[in-house]
Nucleic acid binder design. Structure first.
Length: 428
RNA sequence: GUGGGAAUAGCUCAACUGGCAGAGCACCGGACUGUGGCUCCGGCGGUUGCGGGUUCGAUUCCCGUUUCCCACCCCA
């Protein structure tokens, strides 16, 4: 049997109803903040991610689905292409390519699949889905303003609340400018050198490869050492510090709770200043349901104009997973309003009635005149229809149809002209 | 990529130390040819993930492999 490949999965009904609920809610919330949708290709030239995400990141170094294009045109052949591992690089590429900065500030969102070749785990798949949004534009449009950081964070809080996820936790940090980070990295390495010997094996390795990650260590014995290490916040330049304070002040004013986490570091090279993460319990080790931050230098790094930006990516797989506990898919599934059950030879009349009802925006399940009435009732019950409409010779002759409430057993006869209106007012 | 656990009917799971592969739910049919749910009766359903080995005999023990789960790395 051919099966879905490792790390990919089918999203089946009724779960897809929950996914649609999440996406519809996101679109609705984004609209209130005047975000508009952008759809970029699912693959790009490899160089985009190498430059945009960072050569040294794990994503680029070992997790990308990359292949060599083949084609007739010289320009196609041998070109290295990659399935997008994240959305921001592609969006910024589109921003540069179409000179979107000329329109002023861009508020864009993008919903779709991403690909990373990682070992699958709970809440982690090789094809996974992200809901991504970005505010990007020329500095003159205010793209650098802390007001935009706070707006994005407040929007996320609103979205999570709307989805019924109440026990989220916003972790906030500033990772400064690249210049700030160079100094911080030096200080961190210097501080680690005398003490790293007492730390766990993982930390000893991190101290060499990626000192920032030492802050992620969960080994209890290492915590006292980690407490003594310098923090990025101590190395923020005047501008970064003021920017960070301004973000916090606005959040306090609008009433979005957050906790400062000066150990929060982000994996992607392009992040500057504000970095954040929303976490949620009961997701195992994958407790971050969304993360994001500011990337003021990304456009420049890709050869574009100065275009500061801030954005986030929601891990939709994880979001849906954390939603499932409280909101079963069935609860957002629209069940049929009515099951139209044709008696023998009545398929045509039934189809005509169903057509009429569907035109009135009723959800109609249409049966088959080969079914005995008993079987139609069973089928109607199984699909969860609220009413069953019996289409038999008697009904057609009288132009009035038997309509039975499957839950209460109550049965009425309604003339054809009133059927749609009656059902619409009684569908509940 | 590394470490550990698991895999038996569509789903959830049994099967003693190696001895005839089972149950509940679901599905189909009947009791009931224009009225479902409840009940009763019957039926369908399996290369025990896959490949090899040990054995008279393997769901069971061993090796390999694939996938999933848990964790690491990293991240959404």
């Amino acid at each position: 049997m051919i099966k879905a490949v490792r790390g990919t999965r089918d999203l089946l009904p009724p779960d897809t109803a929950l996914w649609n609920f999440v996406e519809a809610t996101a679109r609705d919330v984004f609209r209130a903040y005047n975000f508009q949708e952008i759809r970029t290709p699912i693959f790009e030239v490899t160089e985009l991610f190498a430059r945009g995400v960072g050569e040294e990141t794990d994503i680029v170094a070992k997790e990308m689905y990359t292949w060599e294009d083949r084609g007739r045109a010289e320009s196609d052949r041998g070109q290295s292409l990659t399935l997008r591992p994240e959305a921001t690089a592609g969006i910024v590429r589109a921003y540069i390519e179409h000179k979107l900065g000329d329109r002023g500030l861009n508020k864009l969102y993008c919903i779709g699949p991403m690909f990373r070749r990682e070992r699958p785990q709970k809440g982690r798949y090789r094809q996974f889905y992200q809901i991504d949004a970005e505010i990007i534009g020329p500095p003159s449009a205010g793209s650098e303003s802390p007001a935009r950081d706070a707006e994005v964070l407040e929007m996320l809080a609103t979205l999570l609340d709307r989805l019924g996820i109440t026990n989220w936790n916003l972790q906030l940090n500033s990772v400064g400018t690249p210049t700030d980070r160079v100094q911080f990295n030096e200080a961190l390495r210097a501080a680690l050198q005398p003490v790293v010997g007492q730390m766990c094996a993982d930390c000893q390795r991190r101290a060499v490869t990626n000192p920032l990650r030492v802050f992620d260590c969960k080994v209890p014995e290492d915590q006292s050492v980690i407490e003594t290490l310098p923090r990025i916040t101590q190395f923020l330049g005047e501008d970064s510090r003021k920017h960070f304070e301004a973000v916090q002040a606005i959040l306090a004013k609008v009433g979005v709770p957050f906790s400062l986490n000066d150990r929060l570091v982000r994996g992607l090279d392009y992040y500057t200043r504000t970095a954040f993460e929303f976490t949620h319990g009961a997701l195992g080790a994958q407790n971050a349901i969304l993360g994001g931050g500011r990337y003021d230098g990304l456009s420049d790094a890709l050869g574009g104009p100065a275009a500061p930006g801030i954005g986030f990516a929601i891990g939709e797989d994880r979001l849906v997973m954390s939603l499932q506990e409280k909101t079963p898919a069935e609860s957002v599934l629209r069940k049929p309003d009515v099951y139209v059950a044709p008696m023998a030879g009545m398929n045509g009349d039934a189809a005509r009635l169903a057509r009429e009802l569907r035109r009135h925006e009723l959800v109609v399940e249409l049966g088959d005149d080969a079914f005995r009435l008993k079987k139609s009732f069973e089928a109607a019950t199984k699909v969860g229809a609220k009413y069953i409409l019996i289409v038999g010779e008697n009904e057609v002759k009288a132009d009035a149809f038997a309509l039975k409430n499957l839950a209460t057993g109550e049965q009425v006869s309604i003339v054809r002209a009133n059927l749609a209106a009656w059902l619409r007012s009684n569908r509940g």
